[in-house]
Amino acid sequence: MADSEEIMEALLDFQNQCNENKRLRRMQRDWTKLLHYVATDTGDVFTMRVVSGETTEVKKGKEGVPDVIVETDSETLCDMFWGDINPTQKYLKGEIKVKASQEDVMRIDAITAVIWPEV
């Protein structure tokens, strides 16, 4: 089990990776979304705001009406933000639950694919 500080550390690193990747920023320039990440075992919720492909905000707590809700256990959340797992495989196996349109699910996977192409 990962505590909220560990998840936040991973999430901030993920934000940096996203924002520093010019190719990703350009690819996602038409994507503006509010995402909630829920750690099902600890109950922690994190909010991530993406504006025109730039991750402008990450914070602990639930804010706004999300376009995307990602639910999984705290360890898997950390693994996802560190790039240690392929999130879509986990999603299709029912280990990560995503409440979102299928287009948004694919966009999230595209982010992972660009940052960590070998995962």
Partner: peptide, 11 residues
């Protein structure tokens, strides 16, 4: 009942 089940069923 929800979008994620379609892709998961295909899998």
């Amino acid at each position: 009942p929800e979008e994620s089940i379609g892709p998961r069923m295909a899998y």
